[in-house]
């Protein structure tokens, strides 16, 4: 009897365990099925929202007038006109032309990328710390809040130049072989960049490369106006001609040298370094045929040294 009772109890426990396990599986399967079947049913509101209706009110004009719906029609027409005007305004705004202050960095960088292969600025090189030398020199001479971009190139010529840029922004290009040929110190390189800074500030190159066709467009809108994109190509050609062929005049060199000498004459270290720099350049161009074209662009280091001596005596 006791045995029978015990067996019944065991059976009950086993059946309970089996039923519990089956129940858990069934629950898990049902949850998965519900998740799979869940579909976003469209609401009546969304169905209506997307349809655009045009109703011809002419046929039922009399009825509409009596029901005061004419005002609603007028209001809808006004809204449609306002919406059209907004769209037109957005379209016209896409034809805005930048101001001259925003334009120069763009066109100068555009010239650099178009001449990437020729200028060979895309090459691996160490960090020479030139940015810090230039920053320290500029700050010591009172040139504050200036953005400087320096680009090194693995090409002997052009040796160095500053490109036109936006206000208080300067883009300097400098040849690594040129620097290495003279074994320039960081201060001498910074002084060379200072020369280019003053040339850029005076606007010598900018005045030459500028195309007057752009005068009528600065800061305006050219929607429905004829604007020729060829003007950009003309400017790029002007850039190339100035940098590779034309260069600066004696008068421009004299003004640059005079400006620098006035700035650095009270600092003996800078004065000596600048004289040293010009002497190194003069020696290099006379002894190394690779740099013989230097005076075509920057006439002439020898005369610059004479101007400095003359100003020193004064």
């Amino acid at each position: 009897m006791i045995n029978l009772l015990w067996r019944r109890r065991e059976l009950g426990k086993t059946v309970f365990a089996i039923l519990l396990t089956l129940l858990l599986y069934a629950y898990a399967a049902a949850s998965a099925a519900i998740a799979a079947l869940a579909v976003e049913t469209p609401t009546p509101a969304t169905a209506l929202a997307t349809t655009a209706e045009t109703i011809d009110f002419k046929a039922i004009k009399g009825i509409i007038k009596n029901d005061m719906l004419e005002e609603v029609v007028e209001k809808k027409n006004e809204e449609a006109i306002i919406k059209q005007k907004d769209l037109l305004k957005k379209k016209v705004d896409t034809y805005n032309f930048p101001t001259s202050e925003e334009f120069w960095t763009l066109i100068s960088e555009y010239w650099l990328i178009k001449n990437a292969q020729k200028l060979r600025w895309d090459f691996e090189h160490p960090d020479f710390g030139l940015n810090l030398a230039v920053r320290d020199l500029f700050e010591s001479l009172g040139h504050y809040e200036i953005k400087v971009k320096i680009l090194l190139a693995d090409i002997a010529s052009p040796t160095h130049f500053a490109l036109p840029a936006n206000k208080d922004e300067y883009i300097f290009f400098i040849s690594l072989p040129f620097m290495r040929a003279m074994d320039l110190s960081k201060l001498e390189i910074a002084l060379l960049i200072l020369e280019d800074f003053h040339r850029a500030k005076a606007g010598f190159m900018q005045q030459y490369v500028y195309e007057k066709e752009l005068d009528e467009f600065w800061g305006k809108n050219f929607y429905n106006k004829k604007f020729k994109a060829e003007v950009f190509q003309k400017m790029l050609k002007n850039y190339s001609y100035f940098i590779f062929e034309k260069g600066f005049s004696f008068q421009q060199q004299f003004e640059t040298t005079k400006t620098i000498s006035a700035q650095i004459r009270t600092n003996p270290n800078l004065w000596k370094s600048y004289n040293n720099l010009l002497f190194k350049i003069d020696t290099l161009i006379k002894s190394n045929p690779t740099f013989k074209e230097y005076t075509k662009i920057y006439p002439s280091p020898e005369i610059q040294l004479q101007w400095l001596k003359a100003s020193e005596k004064q």
Partner: peptide
């Protein structure tokens, strides 16, 4: 190349 240009440009700002 424009992206490469900005990789190569050494940028600095005076205070």
């Amino acid at each position: 190349y424009w992206g490469k240009l900005y990789d190569q440009l050494i940028m600095e700002k005076t205070r």
